[in-house]
Design a protein around this nucleic acid. Structure first.
Lengths: 147, 147
DNA sequence: CCACTTTCAACCACTTTGTCCCACATCCTA
DNA sequence: TAGGATGTGGGACAAAGTGGTTGAAAGTGG
């Protein structure tokens, strides 16, 4: 499982170094070196080990082609998405459309979301945390879920 | 399977360069170098490896000649449709009717839809994504479906 | 049915891009 | 402080992408 926040850099060529900690998880948990990198909101990249992405595809496949939410989801993930491979230095190429939309150059945060990773612009992430406090309402919701 | 978005260009002659990644999939998964290129909505081109298109044809053939949806479907796909071949540079000619209707010149997005490809005007696609954000409501819908 | 025109597919050659790999820098641990 | 692990940069070369020319075929009109 991917957990926590590890700073990393996206270099001039658009390559993201996957922090060693996450690399280790990948090596022991997933077979291939393939990833699906995409974004739903255009503000953060999502990196799925390919097997995890396929799991999502399978669930989607059960929905009708004409389900509007599915269409919207696919339109968006397809726009930013690409299958990528890791090089020997544990780097992977972030598609340029996504790099621009989510402002992923230089310092970024690579965040573990249990089954996938997220890559975010550090500044934007910090701001969101500051301006978007966890409310009593949110706590109540978690409480309701027994967490 | 075709996945993700690989930007490409349609040149002055109306030739679309199929991105290398998709070319690779075609080479290993499909026998012929033939494609059926068409469009249902006139806003985006669909490119089917010929074998995939035949699969659709067979399903259609089973329907009555008088099935109104079948007629409509064929009317539309026939309007834009053509069988095309790839040249040695992995390019294929987009029929001019379709090029004009879907504004396919210059920068386009070639998008993998698993069994076929879609070609869209990049600018129009970008706008659609930007103006059509994924809402909390949409997320709730997916959540409800267990995705 | 022939001759002229136009179109288009195939090929060639050049340019650009991206991938892979090497080597160095930095950090952390022992 | 030494040595391994992690992270960074950049260059070389192969792959991908582009544009243009030519010859054959299809289309058109007389």
């Amino acid at each position: 499982m991917f957990r926590g926040n590890h700073p990393a850099r996206v270099d001039e060529k658009g390559r993201l170094k996957v922090p060693a900690e996450f690399k280790r998880v990948v090596d022991e948990k997933y077979s291939g070196a393939q990833y699906y990198i995409t974004s739903l909101d255009g503000k953060r990249a999502q990196i799925y080990p390919f097997e995890e992405w396929q799991r999502i595809e399978e669930k989607l496949a059960r929905l009708s082609t004409f389900n509007p939410t599915k269409k919207k989801f696919l339109d968006r993930t397809n726009y930013y998405g690409q299958v990528v491979e890791m090089d020997n230095q544990a780097r992977l190429l972030v598609p340029s459309l996504l790099r621009e939309a989510a402002q992923l150059k230089g310092e970024v945060a690579v965040v573990g979301m249990l089954t996938y990773l997220e890559v975010r612009n550090l500044e934007a992430y910090r701001k969101e945390i500051e301006e978007n406090a966890f409310t009593a309402e949110d706590e109540a919701t978690l409480d309701g879920l027994g967490i």
